[in-house]
Amino acid sequence: MLKVYLGDMEGEVYNPPVYFDNQYEDEWITDEFAEKMISDIDKSTVVSPHIIESPFLGAITPKELSGGVKTLILMKYDDSGNIFNATACGDNCAKWILKIAESKDLTVTLHHGMRFGEGPYEIMIMNTGKIVHNRQEWLDVVFDYV
């Protein structure tokens, strides 16, 4: 399930892209799920753990991936227990956050009203303990906190 803490949280990783640059592992990049996220968000193709082909930038390394994809990869693979700031992700990453949370309990912070779409989905608002299931329920709570 996806658990979202709205607003500042003590100890959160506020800048996930920088964390990613110093912590990512080669195996994360070449995993099929990561390759799909990189293809969808960055429109780029993983060639090897160290080379990604971008239609805009040419051959890049994982450090030149978008901040959104870096944060998604951390959410999927990092097992440090750190909580990542999902506001580093654009709305085009929202469906991937929900997908990642289908296979694990994923806790993130949010500092803006991300658009998760119409739903249905299950997102626990950690500030209240309430679970929201669709866009309207999400909107009813999110702007009380961000």
Partner: peptide, 11 residues
Amino acid sequence: IRGDSATGKTT
């Protein structure tokens, strides 16, 4: 500036 990921903001 805001918007979707991978639109070139950081670049």
